[in-house]
Design a protein around this nucleic acid. Structure first.
Lengths: 233, 233
DNA sequence: GAGTGGTCTAGACCACCCT
DNA sequence: GGGTGGTCTAGACCACTCA
């Protein structure tokens, strides 16, 4: 584990534990240098991560301050699996595996040159507080993962990739649109026709630059919320 | 202008000009050190920004590579005014100012302790290719900007804040939801009732930590698209 | 003037990739 | 082995804020 990662994690834990409540000031760069016996740039890197993630903001000449967090929302600015998300939000979540089939990457993802790309299609339905709210269609490229033998109910695809196959996920590119519910959506989620669907399509990249999977995550729009921070450049 | 900012801007220009096409390799850290006569951390900072913005990806042991860009979409991961966005996408855009009135921050933004916060409400309608697609409701805090005398059609609120008032915008916090169209939406955008609205509510922060404005940006959902990059931590 | 964050330097060692 | 990115150091100077 890197030094800046350790410092980041410890500070984040202290924020979440309430040691640094909303608007509180974090230790200064120099305080962190002494506390962790690191160079200033190392402590700054840890804090820069917290800034990136929207936990704190830095103000020149004043200090680093905790920003009020809205915890009951869907963050889309990080690559985060459904299971990690639900655990973080402490929601009662349940996932039901529907099918695992041999398939191809759907043309909507505009991948490759019209030749079919073999993939394993995984369809799952996500419940929050016992209400079906998300249907995930994952297309895992067979070039990268030849076979998905058995997907335990208790293991996410990301965990499978990272822990069992030793692959490291680094980036995702996400597209958000709003589309009408299709027949499958309405049936699986028990929707009236009038409810639209928020569709988040993702390409997930490994740290060696390969694409490992395409995902279409279909959220019922009246249960969808996303919060994110953005910096101005 | 900072050195890393200059390097970043020049590299980005070269990417957009096609000098580094998709999948091309950017100069290495050491090449950039020589080219710009800077320390390695400075050149790395410039490239780190490009990574943040999703233009390139770095692969250990191999190099830094350009990622294919999808340019015709709404980026929501940066604080960017409508005018800046439209200019970047080279779309035919037009903005119509509807009203400037004395108002208060609506309760939906959950700001303060239920006491009304005085603000100037600015309502504008945005056209892309002569079709009305976005209605923006801005609430500019009177504590920060006491009066908005006259808003030229050719000046955005951000330009007004930054250039005329010398304020520096640094962060925004955005919430995305999907809601039914209200009567105003339907009338101004000429919508059938069945079209939902993507609502992006933002709080915009100055670099001194003050909030300057709240914005409710209402997009007709069938014309809405957002693309963003996210890194896994 | 003391404290804060912002930028920058000139090194160093490491892990990883490719040939 | 040579090139790449990832981390880290021990300084330095600056702009800004606050008392």
């Amino acid at each position: 584990m890197n030094k800046y990662q350790i410092i980041h994690d410890e500070l984040l834990k202290e924020i979440n534990d309430g040691k640094y409540p909303n608007n509180a000031m974090l230790p200064s760069d120099f305080a962190l240098m002494n506390r962790y016996h690191v160079a200033r740039e190392t402590s700054r890197k840890a804090v820069a991560m917290l800034v990136d993630e929207g936990y704190v903001m830095r103000i020149k000449g004043r200090g680093t301050f905790v920003i009020n967090q809205n915890r009951y929302s869907f963050p889309i600015s990080h690559v985060e699996s459904y299971r990690e998300l639900a655990a973080r939000l402490k929601l009662n979540e349940r996932t039901q595996l529907l099918t695992i089939t041999d398939s191809e990457v759907p043309s909507v993802f505009e991948y490759g040159d019209d030749t079919p790309v073999p993939a394993t299609a995984v369809v799952r339905i996500r419940y929050l507080d016992n209400e079906p709210v998300i249907i995930d269609h994952d297309y895992v490229l067979k070039d990268v993962v030849p076979e998905i033998k058995k997907l335990s109910q208790s293991v996410s695809l990301f965990e499978l990739f990272e822990q069992q196959l030793g692959l490291v996920i680094s980036y995702a590119k996400k597209t958000i649109t709003v589309e009408p519910a299709n027949a499958t959506d309405r049936q699986l989620m028990g929707l009236a026709e009038s409810i639209p669907i928020v569709v988040i399509r993702s390409e997930t990249f490994l740290n060696d630059g390969r694409i490992i999977s395409f995902t279409e995550s279909r959220h019922r729009a009246d249960r969808f919320k996303s919060v994110e921070f953005s910096r101005r450049h």
